[in-house]
Design a protein around this nucleic acid. Structure first.
Length: 579
RNA sequence: GCGCCCAUAGCUCAAUUGGAUAGAGCAACGCCCUUCUAAGGCGUAGGUUCCAGGUUCGAGCCCUGGUGGGCGUACCA
């Protein structure tokens, strides 16, 4: 049941009935204040000119024409011509009942698209650092949501597994192996390894030349080099997978389609661009002049696809990727999650790709940028010594801090339970702090706010869930299988019921705009309304009528299912108890 | 120089895409645990939405011009 859609359809029909143009918008929105009902229709004012009538008259006509008798308690005209919609409690109860009977919480699958989602994409030369957190978890939530809505999602982990830096790394690795070290040991800390290699590259006689030699050999397909490379990549991927596991992110090895996967296609891409006279020679390089992005003097933007030395760049790789996703993966839509600094690059890539026919006209290509992670001082987030913060370290610290907090409470938990809960709370807090912000702006990372565990944080949501579980434990019932007739009376019950029915709106918005914070807001509001309901509407206490008790248990049960579903999509784990 | 993004309560952030009196959390100040988990609830206070114009029934949101900040801009990704 989608209230918003239903109301829109009914208002659309009413508008046509009163003689409004067929394409007249039907702006139905949630009301901002309780006295304005649950929804409002704001379209009467805009029609005043077209229909040459007063807005309030139009509103009256709409109210007279609309067929909503079984849905609304009353329709009120207010202000310049707003129509306030008060939904019927009985209708809400019936709608919720439908939701409760459905394994998918009443959400019907959309007409399925094939959506390619490019996210995480760490550089394998180094370990994952905080800069990879946002792309990884934001992408993951969007993927989860799209799949839940019935789309075919193809994850593409476009890992940075190729490039000149690997020459230096492989030369260093080769030496280590000759000194009979095991690869996994030598590469146990990729940051250290990278630093060592860099030092040798800068200082050691002859090492830089060997590094360059390795690059040439690697690109030439030399077997020994490729074996070394594979060794390095495997170890590095293992590092990433450990982080994914800790983060509860659904990325598998089969989702990896790194830069190296496009090596053999780069020359083809260039040839095709040249054949279509899109790429031309300039200053020894092969470039595309983009007139669409010219400056005021008419100088086109320059997009290099091959360096003067013959090497390819990320532009070439991204063009190959775009073509692969269109022709082989049959993408209807592609989403790419990278930081905002690459916005121009992807804009250019799309223009060139469309010109070259690498992408279908009706295919959508959406770069989803996000801001940087800043420290409390407003500068890029670094360690105390100014170094890059490893993602694995960050997550460990979150778990430690959560464990410390749990230890301070007098909780009735076993050691094992404490550990599990600390991991779920710590990781959840880090993820939620990030996901709950609009992705496009920079965001401030602050341990204190994040792990204070009060207010709008992951633990609050997890706590709301455990409260429901606690009630059902006490009642000796199972929330997942509970079923009872709902009757809505208290205002807190109504507010909760309406919010529960709006889950689908939040998911749709996340799907269209790729903005997980919308889902976070929804879940937080749902949890808040449940907390108010919990305080105001006793369930198992003495003196509560049996029917009321069952109805409230049912509301609690649907809340728990919705919270769990939403948190699952957010990649945040729930638990039965927290203390 | 040019381009993109941003500016909302003391702080961190929302605002259903142009709707009514701009909402939350933290911090501050009051209440509420012998009563389903107080990691909670109820309440008070806090705003010239950076500035100046414009568009219209209506602007935090759209347009123009500023101010301040971030990022990008021919061979890194």
């Amino acid at each position: 049941m989608n209230i918003h859609q239903l109301l829109q359809q009914k208002f659309k029909a009413a508008l046509i009935a009163i003689g409004a143009p067929e394409d007249a918008p039907t702006p139905v929105s949630r009301s901002t204040r309780v006295e304005f009902g649950e929804y409002q229709f704001n379209g009467a004012m805009a029609l005043a000119k077209v229909l040459r009538q007063k807005p309030r008259e139009i509103a009256e006509n709409i109210v007279a024409a609309i067929e909503l008798d079984d849905v609304v308690e009353k329709l009120e005209i207010a202000g310049p011509g707003f129509i306030n919609i008060h939904l019927k409690n009985q209708w809400l109860a019936t709608a919720l009942d439908t939701v409760a009977q459905s394994a998918r919480l009443g959400i019907e699958p959309e007409s399925a698209q094939t959506v390619v989602v490019d996210y995480s994409s760490p550089n394998l030369a180094k370990e994952m650092h905080v800069g990879h957190l946002r792309t990884t978890i934001i992408g993951d939530v969007v993927v989860n949501t799209l799949e839940f809505l019935g789309h075919k999602v193809i994850r593409q982990n476009h890992m940075g597994d190729w490039g000149t830096q690997f020459g230096m790394l492989l030369a260093h690795l080769s030496d280590k192996l000759k000194a009979s070290e095991v690869a996994a040991t030598a590469l146990s800390d990729l940051e250290d390894f990278y630093r060592e290699a860099k030092v040798r590259f800068d200082n050691e006689q002859g090492f830089a030349d060997r590094a360059r030699e390795y690059v040439v050999k690697l690109q030439g397909g030399d077997t020994h080099c490729l074996e070394l490379w594979q060794l390095f990549i495997d170890v590095s991927i293992n590092h990433s997978e450990e982080v994914y596991k800790k983060l509860k992110v659904n990325l598998q090895r089969s989702d990896i389609h790194g830069e190296s996967a496009y090596n053999d296609d780069l020359a083809n891409v260039l040839r095709e661009l040249q054949a279509k006279h899109i790429a031309v020679e300039s200053q020894g390089a092969q470039v595309v002049f983009i007139d669409e992005l010219a400056d005021k003097e008419g100088n086109p933007a320059v997009y290099i696809v091959q360096k003067s030395g013959g090497g390819y760049l990320y532009s070439t790789t991204d063009l190959a990727a775009i073509r692969y996703r269109s022709t082989v993966l049959k993408a209807d839509r592609t989403l790419i999650f990278t930081d905002a600094r690459q916005a121009l690059h992807f804009k250019q890539t799309e223009i060139v790709a469309r010109k070259a026919g690498f992408i279908q006209a009706d295919e959508s290509y959406q770069h989803c940028p996000f801001g940087m992670m800043l420290g409390k001082d407003g500068k890029p987030f670094k360690t105390r010594t100014g170094g890059t913060v490893k993602l694995a370290d960050l997550l460990d610290e979150a778990i430690e801090r959560a464990a410390l907090l749990i230890a301070q409470r007098d909780a009735d938990l076993t050691v094992q339970e404490r550990e599990e809960i600390a991991a779920k709370i710590g990781i959840g807090a880090v993820k939620y702090a990030d996901l709950s912000r609009n992705r496009t702006t920079d965001y401030m990372f602050d341990w204190d706010t994040m792990l204070s565990f009060e207010g709008n944080t992951a633990p609050y949501l997890q706590y709301a869930y455990t409260r429901v579980q606690s009630i059902f434990r006490k009642a000796g019932l199972d929330a997942t299988n509970f079923n009872a007739p709902i009757s809505i009376e208290a205002p807190q019950e109504k507010a909760l019921a309406v919010k529960l029915l709006q889950y689908v709106d939040a998911l749709n918005q996340v799907s269209v705009e790729a903005t997980p914070h919308v889902l976070c807001n929804y879940i937080y509001e749902l949890a808040s309304l449940f907390m108010s309901f919990y305080e105001a509407c006793p369930i198992l206490k003495d003196g509560v009528a049996e029917q009321t008790k069952l109805s409230r248990l049912m509301l609690a049960a649907i809340t728990a299912r919705t919270l769990k579903s939403g948190l699952e999509l957010l990649g945040i784990e729930t638990m039965e108890k927290m203390g």
